[in-house]
Amino acid sequence: METNNKENVCEEMVFTSIFKANSTTVFNYIYYKFGNEEKAHDAVQEAFVKLWENCGKVSPEKARSFVYTVANNLYLNVIKAEKVRLKYADKSLKTTHESPEYLMEQKQFQEKLERALDQLPENQRTVFLLNRIDGKKYAEIAEMEGVSVKAIEKRMHLALKTLRDQIHGI
């Protein structure tokens, strides 16, 4: 802890390591929210430039929530969410023994899922994708969003429920 206290975000090394640990998540986080890559890039820029400007005031432990807060506030009520386009890792290629029908059906299901994700409320989609793609724990997402873990669980629950309802046309 003592060494931690001496660390300063203003130091190039510390700043770079914080950037490497969090920039991708910040990018994804904003992308899941608004479906706009350019805006997500800008959010990363803005958040970390702000972090640098305030490096004297923000301790390394607080840096993570600082950048999420900045990124979050940047587009607060400013931009309208666009269509979130996600890629699918081509895992099917490795399993060539699958029948074409199965692959076809799989593709259709993915398209349905994609549409359903797009229909989700922004906060549910963000929680779902952060958890599923980025492997973020509920507690971490709660920190990003500035809400309780329980609220995140609620969003996750609703996200899954809504996705199923959408995909199965209920």
Partner: peptide, 9 residues
């Protein structure tokens, strides 16, 4: 969902 990937960053 497990096969989903975020855009390249």
């Amino acid at each position: 969902a497990n096969t989903l990937e975020a855009p390249d960053f």
